[in-house]
Design a protein around this nucleic acid. Structure first.
Lengths: 187, 187
DNA sequence: GATCCATTTTGACCTTTGTCAAAATTGTGC
DNA sequence: GCACAATTTTGACAAAGGTCAAAATGGATC
């Protein structure tokens, strides 16, 4: 739980009461590699915090798996679309390693918003951070060459490259596995 | 102001008090075509609501202007990165038509968050919507061909194509103007 | 160490998209 | 309606990246 709260404090320090309420509302889960936190077509009812481990979000397009995000230690993760709208997800969430997570249900979280203004503020701030992060990824991915994108990833998120298979990285970067392999051979 | 409040009600109905406070905190501005709401290097201090008109966000890469978003009637707009972090912007915001906008400063908005929990909730919900929207754009742009992307735009946002020049649309889609022209010639 | 399976690399070729330059079209002010 | 500028289209060619198939490598397990 320590990791979760020290991460939260980086967003917004909250009162002991609010921390206590959050701690009570969250559930710790330990799951093995390859487990699915969410399966396409089902509604995502939880927001997760990754204490230890790794996960990816992916969906299937023309028979191929496309990984569109990774999550590691200290990341919050969920299928945002499904969690927010409570509609069925188009994506799967899979653990890439045995992981330790904390999770809270949508209902509990919404209840805490009513009890603690500061928890809703915390989440508002978290959304701001995640929005900016996504915008950066968008701009980077959309307007740069495959080689540039790989080099940015290498520089800014070397942990991804160390812990994830090439096929998953290539779909994350939006290029074919063969092209990624060739880019690496040159570098 | 009507458009603003009917848009807000779609996100979250708020009390008359809160509406009143918002109305007081916001300023109506009318500006001509081509005006810059924000210039690269300056810090974005306002959140805008577009009542009438159109705008784009763009930045310069290797001597070319890259448009990465458009905003039209009923959209909220700002340089999110700069507005959130209060650091200098990397982008410009330009009006594509003479426009009527409402704006609120970061400080006023933050003050209203303290006064009215429900206004912070409204903004939290708005972030959720905008996050989902961006995620959809990300997935669409990243994993589909130029032709597909143009056709989606044509289907989902025909107003963009009617009101914006080809060069701006092509950079928005992440393709060259010539390629876009050829795609259109075929369709 | 031999075997099996998954992952990564390499080769040959094809398709899509980009680039540069020029022509055609459209829009605007006078 | 004319002149000028801006925008869009077309052509010829180049470059980036994709595809399919086969070979190489790297772990696991027995």
């Amino acid at each position: 739980m320590d990791k979760l709260f020290s991460q939260i404090r980086q967003y917004l320090p909250i009162s002991a009461d609010a921390e206590q309420a959050l701690a009570t509302g969250m559930e710790r889960i330990v799951l093995p590699k390859n487990d699915l936190l969410l399966r396409e077509g089902r509604t995502c009812r939880h927001l997760y915090f990754m204490e230890e481990g790794a996960a990816r979000g992916y969906y299937t397009l023309e028979g191929r798996e496309i990984t569109h995000w990774f999550a590691f230690e200290n990341d919050f993760l969920t299928s945002f679309h499904s969690f927010i709208t409570q509609e069925p997800a188009v994506e799967n969430i899979q653990l890439l390693e045995g992981s330790v997570l904390h999770r809270i249900s949508k209902e509990k979280l919404t209840g805490l918003f009513n009890e603690f203004h500061e928890i809703e503020r915390l989440v508002r701030i978290a959304y701001e951070k995640y929005y900016i992060r996504l915008e950066e990824r968008y701009v980077n991915s959309h307007f740069r060459s495959a080689t540039d994108r790989y080099e940015s990833l290498l520089k800014e998120s070397p942990h991804i490259i160390e812990r994830v298979s090439l096929g998953q990285i290539s779909s994350y970067l939006g290029i074919s596995q063969e092209t990624l392999s060739r880019i690496r051979a040159k570098g």
